[in-house]
Design a protein around this nucleic acid. Structure first.
Lengths: 178, 178
DNA sequence: TATAACCTGCGACAATTTGCCACAGGCTCG
DNA sequence: CGAGCCTGTGGCAAATTGTCGCAGGTTATA
């Protein structure tokens, strides 16, 4: 790792994109963000990145479609797919298309970096990161789905295939400190 | 396919193995079955197969360990992993090791055959429009951490701040289907 | 404006799932 | 061999869930 890595983040949720970009910059990476495919390609052509973090669900289209164009620009580019709508089918497809790794959200910044760095086997990234506890993971996921449903508890419980009563009880409890 | 393909089925459930073998033979393939890794390799060396169907969970060891030896015998061998304990983490691993495809059980014979013949990008993968249920998310997370710890249950339980006994019980259960 | 269709909070109780302790056996390292 | 770790299991008490039911609030609409 001579110069600081240049990482391209393609993600259509501006809040998450911003948070991720900030977290990455704080760690010394140069980061560009794009909210959709066309702009992502334009940025990548302008300055070819060393790595990319792609959201699977970019509005209409799929982040999968970006893998090959990006790989064509730089065959050693490390690409991680990140998504709140993970599935085995898309994971298989992503890896076959050349992605380095595939992570279901929520994933924290260090996990993402570890995924990018793992195959390169570089010295930079500290692998031994503590994973989120299941409680914390559950809490984050519930919060995300809850906001997607505008705070509607019944709808959220249905989407999560969880009993409304149980969801209510979980929400009443502490936001899980660690 | 000109000559009838020779398919190796490695599966430790004799009932399922028998059913799959019969179904494949009925379709004109030549099939060998093995219940465990050692025998699978012996059969493969005796007559190098064109394709293999591996169970991910072969008693003690993992079907993942068979991928590379088989590929070494015949680099064009098509390998499909099949498992009742599917997770994104192991799917990613399998594909990286060279598997052609990865299917959660139950998968019917035609699906398996389709997977063996499949080429990258030849079918559209549907993007899931529902987020994962909390149970499913938990399963995926556990599997991810477990593979990061090379299958060490005690270490995984510690990392997850979860009781080892509890983790064991969760692992024995089936992953959540949706 | 009455009505149906949802949502929410909450009590109660049974069914499950955890947290914990303990023990036995397997494996590896020095 | 002994120390240290890992794993599978049994048994219980404690905690969490799954279910029902009910009262009261909102919202869309005929």
């Amino acid at each position: 790792m001579t110069a600081p890595w240049h990482i391209l983040v393609v993600e259509d949720d501006p809040v998450f994109a911003g948070a991720l970009a900030t977290a990455l910059r704080r760690r010394g990476y140069r980061v560009d963000t794009a909210a959709e495919a066309k702009r992502a390609i334009a940025l990548a052509v302008a300055e070819i990145p060393d790595a990319a973090v792609l959201d699977l669900k970019l509005g209409e289209n799929s982040g999968l479609a970006l893998i090959q164009p990006l790989k064509a620009l730089n065959p050693t580019m490390q690409i991680v797919l990140l998504t709140g709508y993970a599935s085995i089918a898309t994971a298989v497809e992503a890896i076959k298309l050349g992605a380095t790794h595939y992570l279901p959200k929520p994933a924290d910044t260090d996990e993402i970096l570890a995924a990018l760095g793992r195959v390169v086997g570089d010295i930079e990234v500290a692998l031994p990161e503590e994973p989120m506890s299941v409680d914390r993971l559950e809490w984050e996921h519930i919060q995300k789905v809850l906001t997607e449903h505008d705070g509607n508890i019944s709808a959220t419980a249905r989407a999560l295939k969880m009993h409304r009563r149980t969801l209510q009880r979980k929400l009443m409890k502490r936001p899980v400190r660690e």
